[in-house]
Design a protein around this nucleic acid. Structure first.
Length: 544
DNA sequence: TCAACGTGCG
């Protein structure tokens, strides 16, 4: 690049400059080339301006605000330049800038073309603002671009992202010709809105399916909490569909994580390696999360440590810190937090939630207060989850009055699960006067929830107020609250087994129950006298 | 002088 700087301005230097601009890799390089363009008096030459604008607006290592500065100096930018800037902002952190530039464009009397609209629709989709999307839609129809397939496809996506599946469907149904992307956008729309029956139906109706179709369906099941169904679809994809890509694997690993299916998770890891899928940071984070949630902390650490320090971000640190925390590896978790700060990763709200979880598991009340306070000191607002975690810390540590006071002074309404944490703290620490107050509040808050009656009934059982305990159960039945059976999942040799209380349908049911009886007997003999009644009560009536 | 620029899955 420096070799040309002394040459006089001629055809050869122009061509070389263009070549260099095409090969540009970083903003630093671009700025140097831009300086040369200016010094050669080429600042009005579209060929050069378009390359400078495009790189800074669209490249991964670009800088959209720099692009905008260059753009603002143009006296009468051609439509291509407007589109480049709008496109750049639609992919940026501020998609609303696309909209404001669009409005300015209209005020100046510049007419958008068929290429302007997909970026504007995308910006509205990313903003999750249906009103904005709708007014863009009005412009599209007014300017006669309503039947452009690219624009229609992005409209489907926009309406679905904003949660309006009806409008998305209206666009889809009104299309004269549909391509694969149209079907995929509609499919993903149903999946995004949790309409899995419709998604499945559409999937079966599709004239063709690619990796995006399969991934959308799988991710829909994952988002709907139907992890087993997600795995079934994935298996089918391996059998009859296209090869999975890294996007597919992120969803599938998420399903394994929720199922606690370690063996299947390992198979997925092997699939990624065998098929040479790109190990993106997102995918590595999913692997860490899967291993951690399945209890394979060593394997989680192995993946985590394989990530280069230069290519890391806060998400993967959160996954690892949180994984250690939930496994009770509290010291390791906090140590990792120190390490993270040393290499300059800025913690976010989730990091603090993980740290508070660690404190809850380790009984670290002082540290929890410290983390809770630093959250606000770093300019973040504690969310309901942070308050809930703090209540959990205090309740587990037996600081029940403080916990109750904390709840009363919070700027947000307490959730039932928060009071639930306080209630079990009260029961465990025999703070039974408070337990009764909290237990009653919980029933008021969630009269349809079976666990809330059981919770208060457990309180009465501890103080041997058997009549009150029974009356709670009767109140539950009187109000027609159904007890929803809790279940456990256990993975053995790659197979998942589901157990429901009193379930005798499992082939190994007999062995399971004899082992359970053995354990219960052992516990009966091993328990301290003072805790005996309530713990037994909890074993028999599942814990709320 | 002209064209360059567009849609869907984490």
């Amino acid at each position: 690049m420096l070799g040309v700087s002394l040459l006089s301005k001629n055809v050869y230097t122009n061509r070389m400059l263009l070549n260099l601009l095409d090969k540009c890799k970083s903003m630093l390089e671009l700025k140097q080339l831009h300086a040369m363009v200016l010094s050669f008096g080429l600042s009005k030459d579209d060929l050069f301006i378009s390359r400078i604008l495009s790189f800074s607006a669209l490249s991964n290592s670009g800088d959209i605000d720099y692009s905008y500065k260059v753009f603002s100096q143009l006296s009468c930018p051609r439509i291509f330049f407007w589109n480049t800037i709008i496109r750049g902002y639609s992919n940026s952190k501020n998609p609303n800038r696309s909209i404001s530039i669009f409005i300015r464009m209209l005020r100046l009397g510049v007419v958008p073309d068929y290429l302007t609209y997909p970026f504007l629709v995308k910006a509205s989709a990313r903003l999750l603002k249906q009103e904005t999307g709708e007014s863009v839609h009005v412009h599209i129809v007014k300017t006669g671009h309503g039947s452009d397939i690219f624009i229609q496809n992005s409209l489907i996506h926009m309406y679905a992202s904003c949660g309006n599946i009806m409008f998305a469907r209206k666009v889809f149904d009104g299309m004269q010709g549909r391509n694969l992307v149209s079907w995929n956008s509609m499919l993903d729309g149903f999946a995004k809105c949790g309409e899995m029956v419709l998604a499945q139906k559409l999937f079966e109706l599709m004239p063709e399916r690619d990796v995006v179709s399969w991934s959308s369906l799988i991710d829909g099941y994952v988002k709907a909490g139907e992890y087993r169904e997600a795995m079934v679809v994935f298996d089918k994809m391996l059998a009859v569909g296209p090869k999975a890509n890294e996007v597919t694997m992120v969803s599938v690993l998420c399903a394994c994580a929720h199922l606690g299916a370690l063996e299947q998770g390992r198979v997925m890891h092997k699939y990624i390696v065998d098929n040479e899928l790109r190990l993106t940071l997102v995918l590595q984070t999913s692997l860490v999360d899967m291993y951690a949630k399945c209890g394979a902390i060593e394997e989680a650490l192995l993946v985590f440590r394989s990530v280069l320090k230069s290519q890391t971000d806060v998400l993967i640190w959160n996954a690892m810190i949180g994984g250690l925390a939930t496994h009770g590896l509290v010291k390791e978790s906090l140590k990792l937090f120190e390490e993270m700060q040393i290499i300059g990763i800025i913690p976010d709200e989730i990091t603090y939630l993980c740290l508070l979880t660690a404190c809850a598991h380790g009984g670290l009340v002082k540290e929890a207060w410290y983390f809770f306070d630093s959250l606000s000191k770093r300019g973040m607002t504690p969310k309901i989850e942070h308050y809930a975690c703090m209540v959990d810390v205090l309740a587990r540590a037996g600081q029940l009055t403080t916990a109750y006071q904390f709840i009363c002074e919070m700027p947000i309404e307490p959730t039932a699960s928060m009071l639930g944490a306080l209630l079990s703290g009260c029961i465990n620490h025999r703070k039974l006067d408070l337990a009764e107050i909290v237990g009653r509040k919980l029933i008021e808050l969630e009269p349809e929830h079976d666990g809330r009656y059981i919770g208060l009934s457990n309180v009465y059982a501890v103080v041997k107020r058997w009549d009150d305990a029974r009356s709670m159960r009767e109140a539950m039945e009187r109000r027609g609250v159904k007890k929803s059976p809790g279940f456990s999942l256990v993975e053995i040799s790659g197979f998942l087994h589901r157990f429901i209380a009193h379930d005798k349908t499992h082939p190994n049911s007999e062995e399971t129950y004899s082992m359970l009886n053995f354990i219960v007997n052992q516990m009966k003999h091993g328990l301290h006298q003072e805790n005996q009644e309530s713990t037994l009560y909890d074993i028999i009536i599942e814990d709320a």
